[in-house]
């Protein structure tokens, strides 16, 4: 029975990673940049809900929606101010370093407003936990909500990308910016939209993460951000189903190695599996192989 509960926990954690990884993956696919500040947008999303729901006593659903709106605006602002001017810079490293700067900036703003001590985050989930097999197996409400949210987001996003004009524009821009612009697609607008969606997803991930692990500090987002980035690479960066598979595998490996091998070495095991996967399949599980020409 304990194995099943570990697996369910792993899928739940993996779902959070998958939602974060989606943001990474979409932004990477379209802007070809590693958005290191993505993890900190998660933290901001968590803090907005914390302030509204715990501080001001506003309805949790409403505060989640506000948090999503706030992060969307934040993501678009970051893209406009810090990333867009560097899109055609001589080195692709420039925008990476700016992203690191933005990450420091968000962490320190949160540090000044909320202080460094972790805050106790009250879970926004009100669903009671599910008891199966005469109480031997308990699935918490947070777990159910996380997994359901992840599935809904994946389905909606796939429909959005494949069925709508804006989604098709995103695919076109990620394929070839110049050609997309010639077809009359607003490239800057499409990239901004990608950042908006990614940041809104980050807000949701922040709430889910803090509900499952109820503590919130300015550094909460950093490690899940890196793990989600690993998940995105794992599944094949730029691919939406890849982010889902990568995220869930990562969550499973992390929880199972924590349970059965060593809690201190769980991160090392996660990263070791990543390395093995990349060595066998250098573009990730679902990544496309791009042939380079002279």
């Amino acid at each position: 029975m304990s194995l099943i509960s570990y697996v369910i926990n792993g899928i739940s954690l993996g779902s959070v990673y998958a939602i974060i990884a989606l943001g990474y993956s979409m932004v990477y696919g379209i802007a070809k940049m590693l958005n290191f500040a993505h993890g900190d947008v998660i933290m901001v999303g968590g803090f907005v809900v914390y302030t509204m729901a715990s501080g001001l006593g506003i309805n949790p659903i409403l505060s989640i929606l506000c948090s999503m709106a706030f992060c969307t605006v934040l993501g678009m602002t970051i893209e406009r101010i810090a990333y867009r001017p560097l899109r055609n810079a001589a080195s692709s490293l420039a925008v990476l370093i700016t992203a690191i700067g933005v990450s420091y900036f968000l962490q320190n703003i949160a540090l000044i407003i909320y202080g460094s001590s972790p805050k106790a985050f009250t879970s926004v989930v009100t669903i009671p936990s599910l008891k199966l097999a005469d109480g031997a197996l308990t699935i918490s409400g947070e777990t159910i909500v996380t997994i359901v949210a992840c599935i809904i987001i994946m389905v909606v996003l796939m429909l959005f990308i494949n069925k709508t004009k804006a989604g098709q524009a995103m695919l076109a821009v990620s394929e070839d910016k110049g050609a997309a612009a010639l077809m009359g697609i607003n490239v800057n607008g499409t990239i901004a939209l990608t950042f908006a969606i990614g940041s809104a997803l980050a807000a949701i991930a922040g709430v889910l993460l803090c509900s499952a692990y109820p503590s919130l500090s300015p550094y909460t987002g950093a490690m899940p951000g890196i793990k989600a980035f690993v998940a995105a690479v794992f599944g094949g960066i730029g691919s939406i189903p890849g982010a889902l598979i990568g995220g869930i595998l990562l969550g499973l490996i992390e929880i199972l190695s924590k349970a059965y091998i060593s809690s201190q070495l769980s991160d090392a095991i996660v990263f070791a599996v990543l390395i093995v996967v990349l060595l066998v399949k250098p573009t990730g599980i679902l990544g496309k192989q791009i042939q380079e020409k002279v």
Partner: peptide, 24 residues
């Protein structure tokens, strides 16, 4: 002290934009 890392991050972003953006 409280604002030093905030200023550091702003300086970092500003310097990157100034040094690397094609417009600058």
């Amino acid at each position: 002290s409280e604002y030093r890392l905030l200023i550091y991050s702003i300086v970092l972003i500003g310097m990157m934009l100034f040094n690397w953006s094609p417009k600058a």
